[in-house]
Structure formats: C-alpha cells, structure tokens
Write a protein that binds this DNA or RNA. Structure first.
Lengths: 101, 101
DNA sequence: TTGTTTTATCGTAATATTGCAATATAGCAA
DNA sequence: TTGCTATATTGCAATATTACGATAAAACAA
C-alpha cells in the first residue's frame, strides 16, 4: 500500500534501511561527495553545481539532514551544510559491520 | 515528478544510489541478513520468517536480484536464493571507498 | 522603512513504491 | 492426464517520492 511495514522489523534494521534509503538517490550521493570534498561546507553552490532547482536541492538536503549525515550551520542569510563527521564514522562502521556479516 | 533525473549524474553515482536504494527497505535488510546467516540459501522459508505475504517477499527478492546482491538458483519447483559473494565484496569495497572519501 | 539575497516551505503533477489477493507458471508425483 | 507445491506475475489501492513554480521567511544593506 505504499507504506513500509517498519513495525515488524528491528530498530537496527529500520535504521540501516533509512540510511541506505537516504543514500538511494544520485543527487544525494552527489551532494555528499561535494560536501566531502569541500571542507568549507558551502551550500548555495550546490544549486549551481547540480542541474536541479533550488527547492529540489533543498529537499534533498533535508533528507540527508533527517538521517544525520549532514548538518546545517546558519550564517546570516546563508546556511552552510557540512558532513557530520561523527555520524559519518558511525555509519561507516555500521556499513562495515553489515558487509562483514 | 516522481522520476529521478539519472541522466545528469555519473554512472558511478547512479550505481551507488541504486545499490543504496535496494538496501533502503527493512524487509530487504532482513532478507540479506537471513541469507548471510544461512549458507544453505533457503528461499520459501523467508515467507515463513517474515510477516509479509509471498508476493511481497518475491517482489523484494526481485529488487535485490536486480542489483546483483543475490542470485536465484532454481532447484525443481523451489528457488533457493543466496548472496552473490563476488558482488557482495565489490559492493563492500564500493561502500568503503565512498565512506573513506 | 524598502530592497536584495538566501533558503525553506507550500502546492501540485507525474511517477514510483509497497503490499496483497488473485492468478499464472513450472516442476514433480501419482 | 490430474493434483500438489513453490514461485512469479498481474492488477489494484494506498502511500511515498521527485521535481519545480510560487511564495514565505529571515538576515542584511541602503
């Protein structure tokens, strides 16, 4: 019915699935790659770099933020996003653990 | 419009996103975990193990097979699925490379 | 104050996903 | 052949996702 049965799975299974889902769009992969490269954590540039509209980029950023992979730092009128390094390492370990099962 | 703009991203970005997307459902995580544990690569049991209908399980298996994470081995009326170990290692490396960027 | 810039949100249309009942298909047994 | 078992496919309804134009909100400049 278009709705995922999260209730019948473990917290860990849902968490891993949510992370994977957030990474399950090429635009979000591109955004993560861009943020990984630029430690300066620029945001508005993403709209220039990606051939997507500003609302669409904003939407993708929201998805990535919702799972904690990135953080938004407000700086005046601008919001500069950056990788949440702590979460990033945690997710890396989570992925490693899964693929080493 | 519900349709992902794959054309504006690289093959690598789309490939990684497709893999993540396939992993982006708790039922598919559960299926992968089950197949990782049972080297005997049973299939029909998945329908008993998971509180999902047979068509739904079959659908999830199809998604995992489409990205190559699992293989289906026909054995009479039964089809026993198993992890594609070669692909599994490749994906693990792909993920590692991404998270080590 | 009024403008400008930047980002977020709203509203909407098109498409995708999820889940299941019903049915089809394939292999085997009798 | 018929019947049984196991899996795949079809069809459908409900919901989710994607994308973008329009607009709102927030901070700053003049």
């Amino acid at each position: 019915m278009g709705v995922t049965r999260t209730d019948i799975f473990s917290t860990e299974q849902n968490a891993l699935a949510d992370l994977a889902k957030a990474m399950g769009h090429p635009a979000r992969i591109a955004i993560l790659e861009y943020l990984l490269k630029s430690d300066t954590c620029i945001c508005g540039d993403l709209v220039d770099v990606l051939p997507l509209s500003q609302p669409t980029v904003s939407q993708h950023l929201k998805v990535l933020k919702s799972v904690g992979l990135i953080k938004g730092c407000v700086e005046g009128t601008r919001v500069s996003y950056c990788i949440d390094r702590e979460k990033w390492l945690a997710v890396r370990n989570q992925m490693n653990a899964f693929f080493d099962l």
